[in-house]
């Protein structure tokens, strides 16, 4: 899941990015409105954490332009203005959620998680595909009750597939979702990565290469039928 953080207070932006990365998100950072709008328009983020007061282009204007451009990316507005009419203005401006500074980081994480989930049409934190179960809140995946030993990024890959079962993701799309802009990737990094996840699924008794199958020339997809079939066994 890829998140954009637009926040001009650099130390704050840095720690939000760090915390979210450790939660398995790939995070892009921007310190001003113009650049933030450009990034948000160009890249299909799963969520945007947007500061309301920014130099150059302020957060509300950025949000309005983004919505006018047709981008429905879920947005969590951060603000230091706690008054009611500011909240209303933020939500009316097209924000999906609102958080007043200073905030507890746990709250930011759970709001971002809910934001991303809602953006993907997922109502709660539990995703079940046959015997494969994901707890998006605890960032834990299990097969038939046995917990898989996944890194944050590996979990993010399973999550990406599981939230859009049957959808084919190109290597570029996967790289975009799992790595932030700064990461310089070799073309086969994703293949190696998918291979590792498949092996971990195999180890848990689920045929990895059938569940995450290769579409030659296109990329990878999660086969819901395969996951369900193995689940019945």
């Amino acid at each position: 899941m890829r998140i954009l953080v637009v926040e001009d207070a650099r130390a704050l932006a840095r720690s939000i990015a760090e915390g979210l990365s450790e939660e398995g998100y790939s995070v892009d950072l921007s310190h001003d409105g113009e650049e933030g709008l450009h990034l948000a328009t160009e890249i299909a983020y799963d969520g945007i954490v947007l500061d309301r007061m920014l130099p150059g282009l302020d957060g509300l204007t950025l949000l309005r332009r983004l919505r006018q451009g047709g981008r429905r990316t879920p947005v969590l507005l951060l603000t230091a203005l706690g008054e009611l009419h500011d909240r209303v203005a933020g939500l009316d401006g097209g924000a999906d959620d609102y958080l007043v500074k200073p905030f507890a980081f746990e709250e930011l994480v759970s709001r971002v998680r809910a934001l991303v989930r809602r953006g993907l049409g997922q109502a709660d934190n539990r995703v079940v595909l046959g015997s494969l179960e994901l707890d998006l809140g605890a960032r834990v995946a299990s097969v038939g009750g046995v917990v898989l030993d996944l890194t944050a990024r590996e979990f993010a890959l399973v999550e990406l597939f599981a939230l859009s079962p049957g959808k084919t993701f190109s290597r570029t799309a996967i790289a975009e979702k799992l790595y932030s802009e700064e990461a310089d990737l070799d073309s086969n990094v994703i293949d190696v990565f998918v291979g590792r996840v498949r092996r971990k699924l195999d180890a848990a008794g689920m045929p990895g290469s059938e569940v995450i199958c290769t579409r030659r020339g296109e990329g990878y997809r999660l086969d819901p039928a395969a996951a369900a079939a193995k689940g019945k066994r």
């Binding site: 207070a9 130390a11 704050l12 720690s15 939000i16 760090e18 915390g19 450790e22 007061m53 230091a80 203005l81 706690g82 008054e83 500011d86 007043v100 500074k101 200073p102 905030f103 507890a104 980081f105 746990e106 930011l108």
Partner: peptide, 25 residues
């Protein structure tokens, strides 16, 4: 007041978030 509030809350948010994220692991 709203500018003062913004100017006060931003460093406070930085302190809180920086500390909380650092303490997570």
């Amino acid at each position: 007041v709203s500018r003062a509030s913004h100017s006060l809350r931003t460093p406070t948010a930085t302190i809180l978030t920086r500390a909380e994220v650092a303490l997570r692991r």
